[in-house]
Design a protein around this nucleic acid. Sequence first.
DNA 1: GTAGAATTTTAGGCGAGGCTAAGATTGACG
DNA 2: CGTCAATCTTAGCCTCGCCTAAAATTCTAC
Lengths: 224, 224
Amino acid sequence: MAQTGTLTHAVEEYLEAIHRFASAREGPTTTGLAEHLDVTPASVTGMLKRLADLGLIAYQRYGRIRLTPAGDRLAHAIVRRHRLAERLLADVLEVPLDQVHDEACRLEHALSPDVAGRIADKLGDPELCPHGHPIDAQADDRTMSLLDAPKSRALVVVRLENESPEVVRYLADQKLLPKARLKVRAREPVGGGVVVEVDGERHTIGRELAATIRVTRPRRTSRT
Amino acid sequence: MAQTGTLTHAVEEYLEAIHRFASAREGPTTTGLAEHLDVTPASVTGMLKRLADLGLIAYQRYGRIRLTPAGDRLAHAIVRRHRLAERLLADVLEVPLDQVHDEACRLEHALSPDVAGRIADKLGDPELCPHGHPIDAQADDRTMSLLDAPKSRALVVVRLENESPEVVRYLADQKLLPKARLKVRAREPVGGGVVVEVDGERHTIGRELAATIRVTRPRRTSRT
DNA sequence: GTAGAATTTTAGGCGAGGCTAAGATTGACG
DNA sequence: CGTCAATCTTAGCCTCGCCTAAAATTCTAC
Ligand SMILES: [Mn+2]
Ligand SMILES: [Mn+2]
Ligand SMILES: [Mn+2]
Ligand SMILES: [Mn+2]
């Protein structure tokens, strides 16, 4: 059983990745993790064994990958540090949004619980990271994927599941960052994209990308 | 020849340590580095070889350890990130001074040049770390060790060469942090300490500790 | 149900960076 | 100058985390 302070960066990175897949309701797979972490599937298998030995995941060969309660607790702590780091970078240091994720992904391993707490204090216990992910409790999720969203209804972007620099930069150009208001105008048939209207303009978002954008009907309270 | 982004944390940590010894006019030694880094002398020898292969230090068995120009440039960059991190922790996040060094010692490896630059911007290009070490150029050093300081003259603490939590906490208690004004009142004979008067009170500082406190005659401009 | 494709795991290997124990070198001192 | 303690290096070993190539398993389609 692993102790909080004793995890290597690699172990933390795997826990974080597994947690992300699970949160996105996507079963973590060997290949998926390999792509996400930019290592080979063989390396993932090796680490999965080690994580299982540490009691952080439940797993047997060729089987499902799931965090144990202990692994989940640790993963949450890591993701929390990541998101607090993102807020510090974005709000205090004014790092451009598309770089924020990658920078935080290194910082998260260097933040002590104490410093993380001080960041939260300093920023007034923010609820969301700059991409719209909750920093603390996962709460119940009333969002839907942009891919599944109904046509012609007012919608708000809640969060971006894909935080890579290219995606964030692209969506920033389209004004599709969290809090952006939009409507789905059309859906192109057979594998085509989603036509959205945002800020008076229409763009087409490809299926794969649309699937990673979570939206909701606007909350009455959020109309500033 | 090593590239900036390609250094491992361990290599960075050794460069930093070697740089610290050199800055403190103390020749870096295998044993000294081993103690500082909390590894065995044998491990240090192994790493020294690797650093020599990388062209970062000039060194041959049983010989002097010196940074090459390339190693020195990298070491400076690392130490600069360390001290900027310290200022961020101390000034923005209000981390207690005695913890600041250790936290920064992990953060320094996770800061990109871009983020380091933004910290410097945000803080208005600070000149000193919270322990009194210069963040950029080393400039000429007019300080002396408290151990060598003349009796009965007004002195100011410039910096603490030893930034460990115990030392910083102890000196904070004695009000001997940078900018503190003091006078040497006496020197105990044979290995004894230095009796200083600070803030109206007298304390005795042991030889070893006194040697790590750098002081100077007060600059006329610094009398606020 | 089975062939072929996709996925996953094993086997074997490597470099980084530690360790211990043992040997080499240096240097201090009588 | 020689001896002995301190310092430093070598030798041999270990774990972590990655790799490639090959084998095993599962999934998909017919
Ligand atoms: Mn990460
Ligand atoms: Mn985020
Ligand atoms: Mn460090
Ligand atoms: Mn400092």
